[in-house]
Design a binder for these strands. Structure first.
Lengths: 170, 170
DNA sequence: CGACTTTTCGGATGCGGTCCAACAATTCGA
DNA sequence: TCGAATTGTTGGACCGCATCCGAAAAGTCG
């Protein structure tokens, strides 16, 4: 209910213009309860992806799993949740800036996980960081390209795969 | 004076534990004055690099200037300012997390500028984003590697150059 | 029905950031 | 030299996010 109320208000008034009090009021719940379910305002949009990022961090620690496979699995079956809606309507929601900011944070988180793995595999600091950045950027860019399409023609998985190919050959 | 007071307090108590009021108190100045000189708390550490990022964004719009040259010029003669100090003493300052966060923001900003340029040069969205991410990560990683060295043996420029070579060949 | 656990709630607290009107200081021109 | 205009400084109000905590409520289970 909280998430629904938040999404509604984001679309109606924009992200910045919607306070947590606004959300909880519409949801008919106390402000405190918001933080029982979300650690922060941004989590309404990002909790889905964040959970997957947490999972991929674990998977990446398994040396048997290739980095590419781990990243492909990361977005497998990613449903068009609040985030996808936010990307599509970023303009209307007035959260271009916030979205860009939070995207950067997630890309960095993924980059860190991949870089740690690459270093474990013997890469130097600079090489690991650069390659990890390319891969992480590929994943995030794929999500954006996919969500930005008016008609979600191809599946997200396909776009991610395409992006990873570019990142690997680069 | 404000910057000095801030740096002192960051080293003494840590970044998070230092409020803006603390800084202005030590600097013997009103809280309001802090925001006359810095747009935000983090700017104490990042204003130097941010200024250079602003410059490189302009340079990158000039098609005559190659991307590599623009990035090399970005960090040319970068002095060991508050940021370098913060990186070196990140642990003592307890700002590992904050530093990582703000680093991600700067890397993203640089990535955006480079990606825009690459797209103008005809690259596709995914390729531009991936390549730009590699280059941006190379620059930021170089700064970290350089600042992290106990003895700043090599110049920052050299490290950046090395990182860019890795990013380009990648 | 009663004991225990989990949610929910309200409210206090702290901090970052914005805005503004009043006041001080400095500059500069008549 | 004096006065005006610009610039810098200040205090304070205001808002929103986030954290913390004790208490009340709701739900669970023997």
């Amino acid at each position: 209910m909280i998430a629904e109320a938040a999404s509604e208000l984001f679309l109606e008034r924009g992200y910045q213009a919607t306070s947590i009090v606004d959300i909880t009021r519409r949801a008919g719940v106390a402000r405190s309860s918001f933080f029982n379910y979300f650690g922060a305002k941004a989590d309404v949009l990002w909790s889905g992806l964040d959970a997957r990022l947490g999972a991929v961090e674990v998977v990446l620690e398994d040396p048997a799993m290739s980095v590419t496979d781990a990243l492909l699995g990361l977005m497998a079956g990613f449903a068009p949740d609040a985030l996808a809606l936010a990307i599509t309507n970023a303009g209307a929601m007035g959260l271009q800036a916030d979205l860009e900011r939070d995207r950067a944070l997630r890309q960095a988180r993924l980059q860190r996980a991949v870089a740690t793995r690459l270093r474990r595999d013997g890469d130097g600091v600079l090489a690991a960081e650069v390659d990890a950045a390319a891969l992480a950027a590929a994943v995030l860019a794929a999500v954006w390209v996919w969500a930005d399409r008016a008609a979600p023609s191809a599946s997200l998985d396909a776009v991610v795969a395409e992006a990873l190919v570019i990142a690997r050959r680069a």
